[in-house]
Amino acid sequence: MAAETTALGWWGVLLAIVAGTMRGGTPFLFVSLGECLTEKSGKINLGLEGTLLTGAMTAYAISYLTGSPWLGVLMAGLAGLMLGAIHGWLSQQPRVNDVAVGIAMIVFGSGIAFFLGKPFIQPSAPQLPTINLSNAAMPPALQAALQISPLFLLGLGIAPLMSWFFRSTRWGLYIRAVGDSPDAARAMGVSIFKVRLLSVMIGSFLAGIGGASLSLYYPGVWTERISSGQGLMAVALVIFAGWKPVQCLWASLLFGGAQALGPALQSVGIQEGYYLFNAAPYILTLLIMILTCSPKRTLSGVPGALGTDN
């Protein structure tokens, strides 16, 4: 027991941030990739916060009931898919605003997750196995930091895949067309309704998996406070990333690392102002938006139909 550890001091802060990027960044990665796909098709889904919670609860419950965490991950994605179907269908009805539906879906999704999740707060569910990239010669702290979640690797793979999908496949083109200029898409004979519905659903599937990473990997529990707003932040992250999947990856790592900053700084003696440290990612995002946006030109990568009624 109690491995012989040595104090790492400021190296510990660095290590915490690096490890935190991978641990805490994984849910951000999945929700932001999901939101990116959704927004590319021209719809916003603010309801991913509810999807994330439902995903976290479903994954934990299924893993506990069946003993298979991977089945939990799959079911979390499917639960997300169902919530996405509601959002995708409802937000495309005439005069129905997608931001409003998103907020209603947060209430509904979290309600469902909390309602069904009550019996699963107490028990410990089997966790996803981690992949060990370290060797025994490394210091224990580094060994712990190198326990990588397969979900993180999965997300790492999905990001470039999604980039390629948008750039080089027919379906990717459809989604971009629907998101950029629905009229052109209509002329191509693409069903805007179907493309958007599918995009929102697949996006929510990913967000559901993001929830699974919260409850089955890090921090690895199911409680009603498991998400600290990662789902809502996805929308900001995607803007931060300029609607580019690979940049979603960097943005997620940054946000994940920022979550580790406050506790890590306190552990080396910087004790005051932690509320402000914790708000750093939001301030940073706002600043970057202010600096990169301009009324003279539209942001590169922004889907043209985003936030409009068609």
Binding site: G12, Y218, Q259, A260, G262, P263, A264, S267
Partner: peptide, 13 residues
């Protein structure tokens, strides 16, 4: 939860 886990980890470090 996430900050609590991060805090624990950085303490171990």
């Amino acid at each position: 939860p996430i900050k609590e886990a991060e805090a624990t980890n950085s303490m171990v470090d």
